[in-house]
């Protein structure tokens, strides 16, 4: 569904992504892992159009997306740190987003109500805690029912109940045949949700395989341990 060819990204002289080529298929959940600063967020931002790659191609449903914008109808993006206009209330933010994207697919407000954001709709964005912002980001990413979901550290900062609600939602959408890409450092969450794993190291995609294969290769039944063992076998740092 998404194919990336030879993607490079430089920030001035620093090369954040080094010729990444990868295919993402529909109906799968990809766990994107790697040390801090390995380029996970940059890769995700390239797909969601916030960062413009230096070279390479990104195809979504066989159409080149770099420099275009219509394709973003198909993508729900949950940023690592959601930034929103300070003066707006939660209610205003959601009605604004619906207004700007009116005419898009059927709305999915299950997370909005699931996180009880309707009870907070009068609260202004700058008064919200980090966790509540995360909830808003998650609810917005799922709101327009997009076929591709890109979640940058979705459960970091969420309370245990919200985290469970979100994970349930993710596996529900997985069963609906959506393509989901998640970055996270919480291996247990990824173990529950994902079907495949990608490992980025210093801007390079060094490993990609299905979760079952990794576990089979290493003989471990927990993803965290399996990844550790795999990395030691391949001589990469964690």
């Amino acid at each position: 569904m998404i194919s990336i060819y030879n993607l490079n990204k430089y920030f001035q002289v620093f090369q954040a992504l080094k010729s990444i080529s990868v295919d993402f298929e529909q109906g799968k959940v990809y766990a994107l892992i790697g040390p801090n600063g390995s380029g996970k967020t940059t890769l995700i931002k390239c797909i969601s159009g916030l960062v413009i790659p230096t070279s390479g191609r990104i195809l979504l449903d066989n159409e080149d997306i770099i420099g275009t914008w219509k394709y973003r109808q198909k993508i729900g993006y949950m940023p690592q740190i959601g930034k929103y206009p300070d003066n707006l209330t939660i209610g205003q933010l959601f009605s604004m987003m619906k207004d700007i994207r009116s005419g898009d697919a059927l709305m999915d407000e299950s997370l909005y109500y699931g996180f009880r954001l309707d009870k907070l709709s009068e609260k202004r964005m700058h008064t919200l805690s980090g966790g509540t912002r995360q909830k808003v980001s998650a609810a917005l990413a799922f709101l327009f029912n997009p076929p591709v979901l890109i979640l940058d550290e979705p459960t970091a900062g969420l309370d245990p109940i919200a985290s469970e609600i979100l994970k349930e939602k993710i596996s529900h959408e997985k069963q609906n045949g959506k393509l989901i890409i998640i970055t996270s450092h919480i291996m247990n969450d990824l173990d529950e949700l994902s079907t495949d794993m990608l490992y980025l190291y210093e801007g390079r995609l060094v490993y990609k395989n299905s979760i079952a294969a990794i576990k089979g290769e290493t003989g471990e039944d927990r993803l965290g341990r399996a990844v550790m063992k795999m990395l030691i076998n391949q001589n990469y740092e964690v």
Binding site: G49, W69, Y71, R72, Q73, Y84, P85, I100, D104
Partner: peptide, 16 residues
């Protein structure tokens, strides 16, 4: 001051 607003818009299907 409206950088956040623009950031939000740019992740949507809206032309830069």
């Amino acid at each position: 001051n409206s950088y956040e607003f623009m950031e939000l818009m740019l992740a949507q299907p809206v032309n830069r």
